[in-house]
Design a protein around this nucleic acid. Structure first.
Lengths: 120, 120
DNA sequence: CATGATACATACTATAGGGTAAGTACTTGT
DNA sequence: ACAAGTACTTACCCTATAGTATGTATCATG
């Protein structure tokens, strides 16, 4: 039943979903809990690590870098580190990251409609 | 450090994110692994439970109903059950669910751009 | 009379992700 | 000499979610 065959795992289903569903593909990239917020803040302009930290106080440092690393690995943000002695690292959106902004805005628009009770 | 205070939990951070970030709000609704796929299939028209099952063979039945229940509870899909003896249940998008289609399409559009290498 | 189809439910497991807490290396300020 | 700020890293825990496997009620059909 359920058409799951030999040695099926979560990873295999993930593969399936990634290939079959472009939306799942996007979810993989921005599905982290704080990623959309990070992207949102970066859409306002380049930010230092510490600026992001202060801008999103509820996220822990571990998760913040974790997400930043993933976003960097996925090519959505670009990290620039000046090799100075108190470290100076800035993050900014790549062109792919900027391409996501319309998506983010579409999501925000829907959320506001829902909260305004526009869909009774 | 990290500005997390007394009795902070995942749930509290969730609350924070939900209030502060409309995108996280959307993620809560369509963030389940198969939800976007389900919504996509429902965008093609009403579907019976068994039709969805066959349309998305890689998802298990448990997860399929689980997601459908959540989507129903979130007001994104509408469940209609005819009280006949072999059960006949159809699912369709609510107006709020339809309102998400532009979001889904924006995500899909971005995904295809990425895969086509449009952002070198 | 047993199988299949319908639309689920339920008990159990496994893993990924987020959270907590603490530490690192280097320098400037007091 | 010690704290504070920079940008992280690491070890550990906890929970939410997906997956596995099986069961349920009803009827039609062979």
């Amino acid at each position: 039943m359920t058409a799951i065959k030999v040695s099926s795992t979560i990873q295999e289903n993930k593969q399936y979903a990634l290939e079959k569903c472009p939306v799942t593909f996007v979810m993989e990239k921005i599905g982290g809990y704080w990623k959309p917020i990070i992207l949102w803040h970066l859409s306002e302009g380049n930010k230092r690590y510490s600026e992001l930290k202060r801008a999103i106080p509820a996220v822990t440092e571990k998760v913040l870098i974790q997400h930043l690393k993933q976003l960097e690995a996925d090519g959505l943000v670009i990290r620039e580190a000046k090799p100075v002695v108190p470290p100076f690292v800035t993050y900014r959106l790549s062109s792919a990251g900027e391409g996501l902004l319309p998506v983010i805005e579409a999501m925000a628009a829907w959320a506001f409609k829902v909260k305004d009770g526009e869909y009774s």
